[in-house]
């Protein structure tokens, strides 16, 4: 039995998900690889977006993977941290914008 929920080594086994459901696994990885190809966005831009999203979904595998990817593509530390701040800004903004709902409710309830 593993002693922790997350194991660094498991990232290398990501491809193994196809062993239990090959058809869907293959479709997913085809799609995944296509998404990160150069397109209207550069693969560098996509890596930075992926880094920001990795923090939003708080996936340690994704954070490791896209930190390495950003480093390989020449992204500097400041740019990476700005991407994480974008995540934080959207996440905190998403909480705060719900404050309007709270305020509306308050206004409806109070005399």
């Amino acid at each position: 039995m593993k002693s922790t929920y997350y194991n660094r080594e498991d990232l290398k086994k990501f491809g193994d998900i196809s062993k239990f459901q090959k058809k869907l696994g293959d479709k997913f990885f085809d799609y995944y690889n296509s998404v990160f190809e150069e397109g209207a966005l550069t693969s560098r831009e996509k890596s930075l977006i992926a880094l920001a999203v990795s923090h939003a979904v708080q996936c340690p595998y994704c954070i490791d993977s896209y930190t390495s990817s950003c480093l390989s593509k020449g992204v500097d530390e400041e740019q990476m941290m700005e991407a994480v701040h974008v995540t934080a800004a959207i996440q905190s903004g998403a909480s705060l914008v719900h404050g309007v709902q709270m305020m509306d409710q308050v206004n409806e309830k109070l005399m």
Binding site: T42, R44, S68, S69, L71, S72, K73, G74
Partner: peptide, 14 residues
């Protein structure tokens, strides 16, 4: 050359 333990990315992009 990378300043750490990672591989270089695409040469043209860099």
């Amino acid at each position: 050359n990378p300043s750490g333990a990672f591989l270089p990315g695409n040469q043209a992009d860099l």
